[in-house]
Design a protein around this nucleic acid. Structure first.
Lengths: 171, 171
DNA sequence: GATGAAACTGGTACTAG
DNA sequence: CTAGTACCAGTTTCATC
């Protein structure tokens, strides 16, 4: 009895698994529902996709174990926790500092103000999405962690008026 | 008995609610744990923050009702659902088209490829974060929904090599 | 692999402090 | 508001197809 989801290429199966390790229709529907509502009960989820609760449970456990389902997170109103001001900071690194890009990005991601770090190919190297209390905190963040660091060649800060996040990828 | 969380300014309370509608320490700890693990059971959550399950349940329900807790979502590996290529597209609108910015952003967010839409103040008006199957799909998206639209003055597409998302705001 | 029943565990509502 | 209790619903396991 293997813990991992074994890539059952040859077994008889009602679904339509297309490739090695790929997902079938049922998996995709489960993921879509869980992206929409991460706290849906196993019973309701099973009813939505039209399988037995036990089947649903097995599938979700397999998706979790295989790493397709990375986790479940609550979404909190930033304003309510004192982070009503959001900004995107485009960062260009010194040419020689690009080798440390990964460490630089991870250090940023560890900061409580940081919500997203995008490592880019293009004119800018990094995009940092932050949520802070006010403009004073924003300035403090940029100065302390970006513009005064020797790896950083240039920064450009843009205020975020609105952020629309779409939690569904398995469309 | 009011359904909404009534702003109990004067009542005796062991916690330290600071302002009208603000959150106390317990609320913040609950939010932090739920951001970390959105599927933690009420029992375990109560044990983590050190209150009775019934208390924990009441608090979380209140946070939900008040809109502080916006929702719960599963996070899916983009690669597994055939969206292994990510990009950020910076969009500048025509000067006269900025009045339709909201509608433009919502239309983008409705697309299955789109994960985030940031409305910015600065040289660019919108930042679109997309996850697509391959470079062909990326080009198709940019052409169909951005560069050929009359509201759009300019676009600049950058590939995302890595995206670090930090699901915790209530630090 | 999917299913249905059976044991178990946790969620929800009520009551008291 | 917090905590304890009792009831009920959902989860999880297992034998079966």
């Amino acid at each position: 009895m293997s813990v991992d989801r074994s890539p059952d290429t040859g077994s008889s199966r009602s679904g339509s698994r297309t490739a090695f390790g790929a997902l079938d229709d049922l998996d995709r529907r489960l993921l879509r529902e869980l992206e929409r509502d991460g706290r849906i009960s196993n019973k309701d989820l099973a009813a939505r996709v039209g399988v037995a609760p036990s089947t649903c449970h097995t599938r979700v456990a397999a998706l979790r174990a295989s790493g397709v389902l990375r986790g479940f997170h609550a979404v909190v109103d930033p304003e309510a926790v004192g982070r009503g001001l959001q900004a995107i900071i485009a960062v260009r690194l010194q040419a020689g500092a690009r080798r440390q890009l990964g460490a630089f990005a991870r250090a940023l991601a560890a900061r409580p103000e940081v919500r997203d770090v995008y490592l880019l190919g293009g004119s800018d190297d990094v995009l940092v999405h932050v949520a802070v209390h006010d403009s004073r905190a924003l300035r403090a963040f940029v100065v302390e962690h970006l513009s005064t660091r020797h790896e950083v060649a240039h920064t450009q800060t843009s205020l975020v008026f609105e952020h629309l996040h779409v939690p569904t990828t398995a469309g």
